[in-house]
């Protein structure tokens, strides 16, 4: 699969560009507007999480994002060299909880999982952290 790859500074103000990057590839791949919004939101939540947690306290971190389509599958890979942070370790929020008991955290990760078909995480000492999101076109 031909993946396009772009390096972004790990800062919130680049989220706009990250969303545009994945949206353009999804659009070329024939994904619907609804699917494109989901893909943008999932990529945003994944990147925000890396900037907030993996790169906590780091101002010059880098986030490499690769995106491509094979058949009816869109794949996004987010690669960082921050602290390992496995999204699977985040407890899903209780969506039935009352207003006062609603968790503030964990929501982004939850949305990312719901919006995509597959989420995979791997971390290695030398290779950094790699989060792979996959979405199937309907």
């Amino acid at each position: 699969m031909a993946m396009r790859k772009v390096k972004f500074p790990a800062q919130f103000q680049y989220l706009d560009e990250i969303r545009d990057f994945v949206a353009e590839i999804a659009r070329q791949g024939g994904f619907s507007d609804k699917e494109i919004y989901s893909i943008q939101l999932a990529a945003d939540e994944a990147a925000s999480n890396i900037i907030e947690h993996a790169y906590e306290g780091v101002t010059d971190g880098e986030l490499e994002i690769a995106c491509g389509i094979k058949g009816d599958l869109l794949t996004i890979t987010l690669h960082d060299h921050g602290q390992p942070f496995d999204p699977a370790s985040v407890r899903p929020p209780d969506l039935k909880a009352d207003l006062s008991d609603r968790q503030i955290g964990g929501l982004g990760i939850y949305l990312m999982r719901k919006l995509m078909d597959e989420v995979e995480y791997e971390s290695s000492t030398h290779g950094g952290n790699r989060l792979t999101l996959t979405k199937r076109r309907n």
């Binding site: 919004y37 939101l41 939540e45 925000s48």
Partner: peptide, 9 residues
């Protein structure tokens, strides 16, 4: 046009 979970929070 767009709102992520940061806005929900």
């Amino acid at each position: 046009e767009y709102m992520s979970s940061a806005g929900f929070r």
